[in-house]
Simulated assay, not measured.
Amino acid sequence: MSSQQQVVESFWRLCRRFGIPINFVTWGEWTYGENQTLGYVYREQTDVGLISLGFKEPVRMSWVKLMAAFLAHMVHDQQDDLIVAATVHEIRNPLTVLSGYQELLSQKHPDPLWEKMDELMMRIAERLDDMLSGYSSTRRLEGFDLTALCHDVGEDYKVFLTRREISLNIHGEPCEIHGDRKQLRQVIRNLLHNAADAVLPGGHIDITVNAQDEHVILRVSDNGMGIHETIRPFLFRPYYTSKIDGHGLGLVICQRIVEQHHGTIDIVDLSPGTAFVVSLPKMQK
């Protein structure tokens, strides 16, 4: 069964599970369901093509538009997963080979300069592996201190921010959460990097971590240019970016990781500046 056919079948089964009186669904060349010649057929043009929905009884067009949009979202999700999986596979394989050769090189040439280069290369390989883990849908759950993780990421970016003349302040008491450390490290990195891109030399970035009721709140704010209100609704859409060298996936990945951890991510306009607020469940004791 093709990946497109799997999406159509999953959508149809989901509708039936929730008792929606749908007879069939058609997207492109794929149809799933029954009684395709009976009942009422509605068609909706979406950004993934024409979607046809068959119902036993008449339904409102607003309902049709909502269901078609949901199916289109499922299609985009699957396409993104395939792209990410292929990218991770293609990068991680040579990265593993690189790490192996680097280890052999350090054993053959115990020179202090080679040892320094080996240490640097291993750190780069570890960071790349962390980054790729952030794009993975597989999670390795553990308990850890989110505030300490923010300090670790801040230390990684220390030289980068100094060169840009940007100050970074990290505040917060220890806050334990249960999640995938590597994936959430990637969220903090992406938000910090975006903030650095938004501020001018002499600007500042603040990261705060606070416990509120049953959640831990991570807030990354800057005093940069801000995000225009016409752009804000599209920031979590795949491949949408206002950066010349951007790929439009950073915030999408952040949102997916946060939602996989049963959390939320929101944008707050500070005028001037912007804050991204992440809410994650507190670790239960």
Results as ranks from 00 to 15, higher is better:
190 N>K: 09
45 Q>V: 10
223 N>K: 08
283 M>D: 08
7 V>A: 01
92 R>F: 00
27 W>H: 14
49 G>V: 00
201 P>E: 13
218 L>T: 03
131 M>E: 11
17 R>N: 11
87 T>A: 13
48 V>G: 00
244 I>K: 14
65 K>Q: 15
155 E>R: 14
152 D>A: 13
277 V>D: 03
47 D>V: 03
182 K>I: 04
40 Y>C: 08
93 N>W: 05
196 A>K: 04
15 C>I: 01
72 A>E: 05
254 C>F: 10
115 E>N: 08
79 Q>W: 07
211 A>W: 01
235 L>D: 01
250 G>W: 03
149 L>K: 11
167 S>H: 12
117 M>N: 07
24 F>T: 04
104 L>M: 02
143 G>I: 01
236 F>C: 06
50 L>W: 11
105 L>E: 05
189 R>G: 10
194 N>M: 10
16 R>M: 11
113 L>K: 05
94 P>D: 01
43 R>V: 10
198 A>F: 09
43 R>M: 06
55 F>T: 06
233 P>M: 02
254 C>P: 10
245 D>V: 02
102 Q>C: 03
220 V>P: 01
112 P>L: 03
196 A>Q: 07
116 K>R: 10
36 Q>K: 05
216 V>A: 02
4 Q>H: 12
253 I>D: 06
156 D>S: 14
274 T>D: 05
111 D>Q: 05
19 G>N: 06
201 P>T: 08
57 E>M: 09
28 G>T: 03
15 C>N: 09
26 T>W: 06
177 I>R: 04
181 R>L: 12
174 P>H: 09
264 T>M: 12
194 N>G: 15
74 M>N: 08
164 R>L: 14
245 D>M: 00
218 L>D: 02
203 G>E: 06
257 I>M: 06
239 Y>K: 15
246 G>D: 05
253 I>C: 12
259 E>L: 09
90 E>V: 05
37 T>R: 12
195 A>M: 09
1 M>E: 03
54 G>T: 00
51 I>A: 06
104 L>C: 00
53 L>V: 05
241 T>F: 02
63 W>L: 15
133 S>K: 11
